[in-house]
């Protein structure tokens, strides 16, 4: 018997069920933790900081000043970016190169080269206020590794990114369709494996800096 046949037999059927069963209804009051759309960036920032991400709120005009300041402070030189409407619109690559950094877009590098980069600067698909998580859907323009391989990750968030609750995120993801790669990022990489001591910076980025555009 194949595994599928064994499963059907164990459930008392002679062939696999073909008609779609109806899963239990998900009662929203039970699951939802964030009920309001008001103050999402503030709640997000609070939760993100609890998860050891650094948050800076700023205006679009001040973004480059803040970003360049942060990259200089952390000693970054090579910066990787996705092809993104937001970042391209702000001419981030051009301005970083102008400021003396070596900034390149994802289409100008290989995955192997990315291992030698100091920082990935990305936009995000969603930002979840409930958990302080970034949600990034990967694509040809936005490599899966950009927010993973370089030791520092900088994310730039727009007001339209914010969603209240995980309930809303999975609702959106289901509506967006496509099953590609989706990553929830809730802090720098960490471990407590050795005697429950929290150590930040294991296999993912050691530092996550967020700029929230107002």
């Amino acid at each position: 018997m194949t595994v599928l046949e064994k499963v059907s037999a164990a459930l008392g059927r002679t062939s696999p069920l073909l008609e779609a069963p109806i899963p239990p209804a998900i009662s929203e009051p039970l699951v939802r933790l964030v009920h309001s759309d008001i103050g999402l960036p503030e709640l997000f920032a609070k939760r993100a900081e609890e998860n050891k991400m650094h948050v800076t709120a700023c205006n679009v005009e001040d973004l480059m000043g803040h970003l360049i300041g942060f990259l200089r402070e952390t000693g970054c030189r090579k910066i990787a970016l996705p092809i993104s409407r937001l970042l391209d619109g702000l001419e981030v690559v051009k301005q970083l190169n102008h400021a003396g950094f070596e900034a390149k877009r994802w289409d100008q590098m290989t995955l192997d080269e990315l291992y030698d980069y100091d920082c990935g600067v990305t936009d995000v698909t969603y930002a979840v206020a409930e958990t302080g998580s970034l949600v990034i859907r990967a694509s040809a323009k936005h490599g899966r590794s950009l927010s993973l391989v370089p030791p520092i990750h900088v994310a730039i968030l727009e007001p339209k990114n914010f969603l209240p609750d995980l309930v809303d995120v999975f609702d959106r993801l289901a509506k967006d369709g496509g099953a590609g790669n989706i990553n929830f990022i809730t802090g720098p990489s960490k471990t407590s494996d050795i005697e429950m001591n929290l150590v930040v910076g294991v296999h993912g980025p050691c530092q996550v800096q967020l700029f929230i555009l107002q």
Binding site: T110, S139, A140, L173, N181
Partner: peptide, 15 residues
């Protein structure tokens, strides 16, 4: 920290 969803190989144009 990370919740990863993946469902297939890289899509057209992905590196």
């Amino acid at each position: 920290v990370y919740t990863n969803l993946f469902g297939g190989p890289q899509q057209e144009g992905e590196k």
